[in-house]
Design a protein around this nucleic acid. Structure first.
Length: 606
RNA sequence: CGGGGCGUGGCGCAGCUUGGUAGCGCGGGUGCUUUGGGAGCACUAGGUCGCAGGUUCGAAUCCUGUCGCCCCGACCA
């Protein structure tokens, strides 16, 4: 391709709309344009990158016998109602774009395809003899993100590869899951990305095991915690660790302590010389559901620990399975008691809560007081305390030396604390978690039978009886991956694409387009590279050399061939954009030979 | 949705405090010169200052409302 015909528009200044390097560069270098928040036009250069990524994905999917397909993006609401996800995906902070058609039918614009593909499986898969199968597609997904950000990092319309596998039993699912894990590692490696696999929360997709693939980059939205020995890595949402040991509280009977105005752990410890690890943090929260009234949740953590919202949401969801989708969990405020629970706002001593807080007495319609049970959970860090300091459930008072069992029964113990960098690992307490930031570019799940049971996707097993399919699903954010690559591969001058996903592999720069000798040699090289099957750009624009060098650096073509002063002697310069071999003057043939060889191709004769 | 910031030629910005009818850099076009790291000179096209009200003799500037965009939080490939 000739640059003069490429519709290349590069910008000298950083666009005001972009914050992070990759977003700025993709805009500046003419790869994309924003149409609306989270909605982008992929310009020809970027489309080539996306095609190259897709080609690698297709090869690796083929290698694990996945079948490419293309599923509908307009999806009937009924299908989503049957899986139980319609409300969660459309109401409240749901992310599904949805609409009503002229026949008054509700439709959603596909944010993901578990429902559609499971419906297909229910129709097509009847016998264990057909299993396992894996379908995938590379397609635009629509998600009404609460806050689109950073260009392609979090778009409302983006390209995703999503794959779904179906199995006769869990062991088979696990084999495919493992094969996908390996395929994903190959994909990211072939794309030239440094990526790490981490244990992950399954989120709204559901299912059991899941693993994310993170491209490490400072601009990443996720925090990864990993052990130095490489044996453990997890998203902080999911990560587990050993908290620091607590400082034992001096022995003695449980006593009351006046703590006027000391409603925070910090105030309490400062005033009385307690260590935060000796205290109990008691949080009163309100969980809202799609299909049930709100419910109060009482959570106990050790005073120095932080609540992990994701773990809590999972715990609440698991214990309120008939309440419909969990919409949100918010700190319970005094006004909630009256408005959401019809309770008495004065009855809860906020700031001085203890685990023995009674269920809030509520006024029913007939004015009789009824106690609505709180969902009570305790984190292991708090459950392990022999004695502790906690709120007395009276304003301006705490208890010192309280014990589980004496004060109140120990609530259900659940892991609810946020692991932090520097904490000891479970698998080897001599290892301490290290933090890194990452961009999630892939996520694989063992879904189990969640969708197949809901949508009655059943098959006949070897024994002749009917059973629900086992499922897995596997996603890669193709457009996000492209931007993540830029985030990981750029310098002060512009993008430095890995060769495998660069829009073009080589750019021939004619230093002086007025020089007939240079033009002739450049054209000859251009033809030979084209014939060798190399993706080559010829910068034939009547610009000064400096402009072309700047643009070549900015758009990030891995190899630059400069046809300049030495063209008369048949010599050119070969420049490696990643800086590997620097700038060298070679004969045209030698340069071509080297290029072709480094790219593993056959040289074409003049 | 809550908190913060910003809307001025295609892009990046100044002007607004203290109202007087719009400016700089880049980019576009034409010509001459230049020609290996975003050239110089000259000429030129292009903006009802997000929108709507209001105050005023007069509004980019002051007031009210409204819309849009960006950043921080909930969301996720």
């Amino acid at each position: 391709m000739r640059v003069s015909r490429l519709m290349l528009v590069t910008l000298r200044d950083d666009p005001a709309e972009a914050e992070i390097a990759s977003h700025k560069l993709l805009l500046r270098a003419g790869y994309m344009r924003r149409l609306a928040p989270g909605i982008f036009a992929y310009l020809p250069l970027l489309w080539r990158v996306l095609q190259k990524v897709s080609a690698i994905v297709r090869e690796e999917m083929a290698a694990v016998d996945a079948l490419e397909t293309l599923l509908p993006q307009l999806q009937p609401a009924d299908l989503w109602r049957r899986s139980g996800r319609w409300d969660g995906y459309t109401a409240g902070e749901g992310i599904m774009f949805h609409l009503v058609d002229r026949q008054e039918r509700s439709l959603g614009l596909g944010p993901t395809h578990e429902e559609v593909v499971t419906e297909l499986a229910a129709d097509l898969l009847r016998s264990y003899r057909q299993l396992p199968v894996c379908l995938y597609q590379i397609q635009t997904k629509f998600r009404d993100e609460i806050r689109p950000r950073f260009g392609l990092m979090r778009g409302r319309e983006f390209i995703m590869k999503d794959a779904y596998s179906f199995h006769a039993d869990e062991a088979c699912l696990q084999r495919t899951y493992a094969a996908m894990d390996r395929a994903y590692r190959r994909i990211f490696e072939r794309c030239g990305l440094r990526a790490v696999a981490v244990e992950a929360d399954s989120g709204a997709i559901g299912g059991s095991a899941s693993q994310e693939f993170m491209v490490t980059a400072e601009a990443g939205e996720d925090l990864i915690l990993a052990s130095p020995d490489g044996r453990y890595a997890a998203n902080q949402e999911r990560a587990v660790s050993l908290p620091a040991a607590s400082v034992p509280l001096e022995a003695g009977p449980c006593r009351s302590l006046a703590t006027p105005g000391q409603s925070s752990i910090e105030d309490l410890c400062t005033a009385h010389g307690f260590d935060p690890t000796q205290t109990l943090k008691v949080l009163l929260l309100l969980a809202r559901f799609a299909a049930a009234p709100p419910r109060g949740v009482l959570v106990c953590l050790r005073g120095d620990q932080q609540l992990n919202d994701v773990k809590l949401a999972n715990a609440v969801t698991a214990r309120c399975s008939d309440a419909g989708a969990l919409l949100e969990i918010v700190p319970l405020q005094a006004e909630h008691l009256a408005t959401d629970l019809s309770g008495d706002a004065g009855s809860v001593p906020f700031g001085f809560l203890g685990p023995h807080l009674e269920d809030p007495p509520l006024r029913n319609g007939d004015a009789r007081a009824v106690a609505v049970p709180l969902l009570r959970l305790v984190d292991a860090s708090a459950a392990e305390l022999e004695t502790f300091v906690c709120g007395a459930n009276r304003i301006d008072a705490h208890l010192v030396g309280a014990r589980w069992g004496e004060l109140c029964p120990l609530p259900e113990v659940v892991d609810l604390r946020a692991a932090q960098p520097g904490e000891r690992c479970l698998h080897d307490p001599s290892q301490r978690l290290e933090a890194a930031r990452g961009i999630e570019v892939g996520h694989i799940f063992q879904l189990g039978r969640k969708y197949s049971e809901a949508l009655e996707a059943r098959f006949t097993n070897e024994a002749g009886s009917d059973e629900a399919l086992w499922m897995g699903c596997y996603g890669i954010g193709v457009s996000r991956l492209a931007q993540a690559a830029v985030e990981q591969h750029h310098d002060a001058d512009g993008i430095r694409w890995p060769v495998a996903i660069a829009p073009y592999t080589v750019i021939i720069v004619i230093a002086s387009s007025q020089d007939a000798v240079q033009v002739a040699l450049a054209e000859q090289l251009y033809g030979r590279l084209l014939r060798a099957g190399i993706d080559v750009l010829l910068d034939d624009r009547p610009e000064r050399a400096g402009v072309k060098f700047k643009d070549a650096d900015l758009i990030g073509i891995p190899w630059r061939l400069v046809v300049g002063r030495a063209a008369g002697d048949g010599k050119v310069e070969l420049v490696d954009r990643s800086g590997g071999t620097g700038k060298r003057e070679l004969t045209a043939d030698a340069a071509l030979e080297e290029l072709v060889q480094s790219l593993g191709l056959q040289v074409a004769s003049p």
